[in-house]
Simulated scan of single mutants.
Amino acid sequence: MIEVDALDVHYGDFQALFGVSLSLARGRALALAGANGAGKTTLLRALMGAHLPSAGTVRYEGADVTALPPHDRVRRGIAMVPEGRRLFPSLTAEENIKVGAVRAASPDWPLARIYDFLPLAATVRDRRASALSGGERQAVAIARALASGPRLLLLDEISLGLAPGVVEQVYEVVRGLRESGATLLIVEQDLDRALGACDDVVCLLEGRVALTSETAAASREDVVAAYFGTEGPHS
C-alpha cells in the first residue's frame, strides 16, 4: 500500500532521516520503533505530507505522492493520529471529530459507526476538548482520523502518557481496526505492545533503518539491540 524509498529529511541544516526505505502491504500493521530522536515522528510527518523530504520518494497505492500536500493525501485515504492528540480545545469532542470529515467525509465511517466503535468518544461528545482526560482525548483523536475514511492510518505514540487501563482500551481499538481490514503504521515506545499488535517491525536508529523484520521472526532482544545500536543476532 505504501512504499518509502531512500528518504532523506532535513530541518534546515540538520538531517533527521538518512536513506530510509520501508514498505507496508495492505491489511498489515507495522510497528515503528526507536528511541526519542530516532526520526519516527519525522517519518510519519513525511508520509502525511507535513514535512517534505529533501530526497527519495513516497508511493501510495502505486502513485508517487512525495510532493502532495496533506489535504490531498487525506482525500486519497491517509490519516494520522498525531502525538499529543492535537485537538481544538475550544471545540466539543464531536466538533473535533467532524473536522476530520471536512476534506474527505466517508460513508464508511458515519458518526454512528464511529461512536459504536469508540464508545469512550461517544460518552464525551458534548464536552469541550480542553476538559477531557488523556484517554478521552486519544479516543477523540482516533475518531477524528476515522471520520475521513482512511485506508492507511498512522498512529504516533498512541499510549504515551496514558494509564495502563486506558492503554488496554486503546489497543482494543487497534485490534478492532485490524479486524476491519485497516492498514496501520504505529509508533509505540512499549515494545511488547507494539510487537504483539503488529505483523512487521522497523526500528530506526539516529535517522537510519536499523532493523526490518516480521514480528514473528524478530525477538524482543533483536529489536532492543537495534533500538540501542548494540550487537544482536539480526543487527
Rank of each mutant, 00 (worst) to 15 (best):
E3V: 13
E3D: 13
V4F: 05
A6M: 14
L7C: 02
V9D: 00
V9K: 00
G12C: 08
G19P: 12
S23R: 15
S23Y: 11
L24A: 04
R26A: 15
R26W: 05
R26P: 08
R28P: 06
L30H: 04
L30I: 05
A38Q: 11
G39Q: 08
T41P: 06
T41Q: 07
T42G: 07
L43D: 10
L43T: 09
A46H: 04
L52D: 11
P53A: 14
P53G: 14
T57Y: 01
R59W: 05
D64E: 14
T66G: 10
A67Y: 01
A67T: 14
P69Q: 02
R73S: 12
R76S: 12
M80Q: 15
V81N: 02
P82A: 03
P82K: 03
G84K: 11
R86A: 09
S90P: 01
E94W: 05
E95D: 13
E95G: 09
K98Q: 14
G100H: 04
R103E: 06
A105M: 05
S106L: 03
S106E: 06
W109I: 00
A112E: 15
I114L: 04
D116E: 15
D116W: 03
F117G: 00
L118H: 07
P119L: 05
T123G: 04
A129W: 02
S133T: 14
S133I: 10
S133Y: 07
S133V: 12
G135Y: 03
G135S: 03
R137L: 05
I142Q: 01
L146I: 00
G149M: 07
L154A: 07
D156A: 12
E157R: 03
I158Q: 08
L160Y: 11
V166A: 03
Y171E: 06
Y171G: 06
G176W: 04
E179W: 01
L184A: 10
L185V: 13
I186V: 15
E188R: 03
D190C: 01
A194E: 01
D200Q: 10
V202P: 02
L205V: 09
V209C: 07
V209A: 07
A210R: 12
A217W: 07
S219H: 08
R220I: 06
D222L: 02
V223L: 04
V224E: 12
A225G: 10
Y227T: 09
Y227D: 07
G229D: 10
E231W: 08
S235M: 11
